[in-house]
Design a protein around this nucleic acid. Structure first.
Lengths: 156, 156
DNA sequence: ATGTCTGCAAATCCTTTGCATTTTA
DNA sequence: TAAAATGCAAAGGATTTGCAGACAT
């Protein structure tokens, strides 16, 4: 059990919108960030991926010779800050990144055995965030991931 | 921003039950785990803490001369597996550990500025877990943490 | 006694930082 | 050409592993 999951590239996060890359790039531009080949490549890769990717996976897919690992980290940070990618923290402390859903915020279902990740449509943490607001907290964000064994792994 | 938060030791996680340590130890025994001085000390420390502790904080509180850092990690793993501690993953990938609430599962409100942690009474992820079950997932667990700026830090 | 835990040391993994160089706007 | 982004190298910090000795049951 380590980084080498063979994700069966499910339907998670696949988007209907024809060009998510373009809008992501546009957002970056609006935020005053610069568009480089490295960033285009990363965004393109994220847009094509049907599942959220780890920094390392993204580095691999983009091509370790094309972009430096450090650049991947720095760009992902910038992207997250700009709101074009959503970070999904995992149990072990690693994170996965995906192009921020243009439609709505969501979370994932992660199989702890095979690593498969499915998208969950809804995100209703309103009640719990309301409690936080009531306590005077501001700038609220949250992390919610569900773990379990997928149907296949359940029967293993 | 690092390990050295000066948590104002709030009321989070403080428990009314007189002896949480004892029941935790009992659970370990039932699970076939061995009770050592190191483990007693760690459980005692966790039981006394009003807030979840990082592995390092626990190490410090127990006494770096009493127990090795490695033992802390290994024990926390064992404790988590045995269900006597609940792990709370943080945004940056670090984790905090607290004696599993004997009463009911809960989550936290974390100030990203000062690091203060408050307990949130309820945990209602039933709807989202139901969706997971419907997809055939088993052995479900989840991670839910809310981040924001506490009242004090909001005005800073 | 014997399988578990522990300590020590070293390794590993992921991520971050410093700085000189290249690139975008 | 000024600010931002990149690559390289090296540092950093948290966690993990290997193994011999200590300990609980």
């Amino acid at each position: 059990m380590h980084g080498g999951h063979s994700h069966p590239d499910g339907d998670c996060c696949s988007s209907e919108s024809p060009d998510r890359s373009a809008s992501a790039v546009e957002t970056l531009r609006q935020k005053g960030l610069r568009i480089t080949e490295a960033r285009r490549a990363m965004i393109r890769t994220l847009a094509l991926s049907s599942i959220p990717l780890s920094a390392d996976a993204l580095h691999q897919k983009v091509g370790t010779d094309k972009v430096d690992r450090v650049t991947v980290y720095r760009s992902l940070d910038a992207f997250e800050l700009a709101g074009v990618v959503q970070r999904h923290p995992l149990e072990k402390g690693r994170s996965l990144y995906a192009l921020a859903a243009t439609d709505h915020h969501h979370h994932h279902l992660v199989c702890r055995q095979c690593g498969k990740i499915e998208r969950l449509s809804s995100c209703d943490t309103t009640a719990i965030e309301a409690a936080a607001k009531k306590r005077g907290y501001t700038q609220l964000t949250h992390v919610l991931e569900i773990y379990g064994l997928c149907p296949t792994c359940s029967h293993g």
